[in-house]
Nucleic acid binder design. Sequence first.
DNA 1: CGTCAGTTTGATCGTTGTCAATCAAAGTGG
DNA 2: CCACTTTGATTGACAACGATCAAACTGACG
Lengths: 228, 228
Amino acid sequence: MTIRGELAEISHPESVTRFIPTGAELYSQGEVCHRCFVLLDGWVALSTLLDDGSCQILDFTAPGALLGFQLAPNVPMYHSARCLTAVRICAYPRSVFDKLVERNSRLAFLLFRQASSDEARAHDHLVNVSLRAARERIAHLLLELYVKVRHQLPIRPHETILLPLTQTDIGQAVGLTGVHVSRTLRVLREQGIVRLANHMLEIVDPIAFTRAAGLETDAPGNRTAGTC
Amino acid sequence: MTIRGELAEISHPESVTRFIPTGAELYSQGEVCHRCFVLLDGWVALSTLLDDGSCQILDFTAPGALLGFQLAPNVPMYHSARCLTAVRICAYPRSVFDKLVERNSRLAFLLFRQASSDEARAHDHLVNVSLRAARERIAHLLLELYVKVRHQLPIRPHETILLPLTQTDIGQAVGLTGVHVSRTLRVLREQGIVRLANHMLEIVDPIAFTRAAGLETDAPGNRTAGTC
DNA sequence: CGTCAGTTTGATCGTTGTCAATCAAAGTGG
DNA sequence: CCACTTTGATTGACAACGATCAAACTGACG
C-alpha cells in the first residue's frame, strides 16, 4: 500500500488535485508550510540555500512521494521544493493530515517507510559527494535517476529516458559547478558511455556506465565487510 | 516518549542489556542484522565502506537512538556500526521487535520520528560536505557534536566536552584526509577558536566558532527564501 | 624499552573552481 | 516575421584547495 492509496481511501473533501507550472515552488525554505502534497506526476527538486548564495539539491522526487510534511508543525522548512517540470499534485491541509495520521496507524508506518528510504538515499548522496570524483559522481547520480524512472538497471545499449535537468541542476546535486559538469559530460560522451541532451539521457554503454557509477557489477554479494 | 521508554514498558524477556568494548562493531556492512539495539550509553559511528577502501562516516549516534533496524528484514546492512567508546546497549531480536511495532502504533510513530530527524541530519551533512570548505566543514561537525552532547549552543568561552574522535574519524565524516584535518585544526587553534586534544573539545571562542561553522548568528529569522 | 596508533609538518601534484568569452536555442515584443 | 533578450552549454586560461607521499614526532601501553 502507498501513502497515496491510504489517503485516497479516505478521500477527504479538503484534499485538492492541482497542476503546478514548471519552475514554481511548492514551498520555500524559511517559510512554514501549512499543506502537504502527494506528487502524482512530474519532477520536483528539494534544495537548500546557504547564506552565501550557494545551493544544494538534496533529492529529486518521483511520483508517489509525500512532500512538505515536516515532523514539527509551524516550524520553517529547511529546504524548498521546486518543480522541474509541470507537476500534478494532491494537496492536504496540514491540520487535516495530522488528524489522519493520528487515527490511521498504517499511515504512520508508511510515513516511516518513506522517511527511512529517504534517509538511505541521503546517505547514498553523502557517500557520492564525499568520496567519489566528478566523473563517478555524475554517473552515479544519472544511474540513480535512471533506476528511479525505469525501476531497473540499464541493460541494453542506447536505452533512453526523459530527464528534465539542466547541467547546473546536476552540479548542485553532486557538489560541482555547472562548468565542470559540462566538461565531465563531454568526457563521458566521448568515451561512448552516456549522452545527455535536450532533456534526454541515453545510456550508450550500460556496463561501462554502471562501472563508472561505482557499482561493482562483476559478481553480486561479494562485499567484504572488513574493518573500517 | 522515547523509543527506549516505549520498549521498556513492554520489558520483553528476550531483551538483553550488554556492554560492548571500544572498537567493536554492533553490526557490519554486508551482513544481515538479526537484532536491533537501543543505545544507552557511549558513542557509536555509522559508516559505509566503498570497494576502493575509502570510508564515509554517515553519522554519530547519541544515547537513545535505535540502531540496526533496517526496514526490510533479511537484507544486508548498507553500513557498519562501530563503537568509539565502551558502549551500553539493550538488544532486541529483530523478530520480536517486528511484532512489537505491529502491535504498538505509538512505536511506529516514534520510528518515523527518529527516521525523520536522521534524514534531516543526513541532509545537513550533505550540505556541509558539498558546499563548505575544510575549515567550515570541521567547525560545523564539531558544533553539531557539541550540541548533541550539551543540547544547546556554546555560550561562555572555554566550555569543554568529551569527544572521543580521532582526526581520521573527523576526516571520514566530513570528506577530508586526516592530514588535512590536522592542518585545519591547527589553524582553528592558532586563531583561538577551538582546541581539540586528548578526547576533549574546548570551545575557546563561541562566537567565532559558530560563525566558522556557517551559522549566521547576527539576527535570527532573517533567512531570505529567494529563488534557487 | 620498544611498539603502535595517532598527530604533525613539508614538498609536490592534481582536480576542480573561478573568470571570461562565445555560442545555440528558445522565448518575447515590436 | 524579425530584432532582442534570456537561459543554458561550451571552451580556455589560470588559481587554489586539498590529496598524496614521506618523515619525524608524541604519548600510551605492554
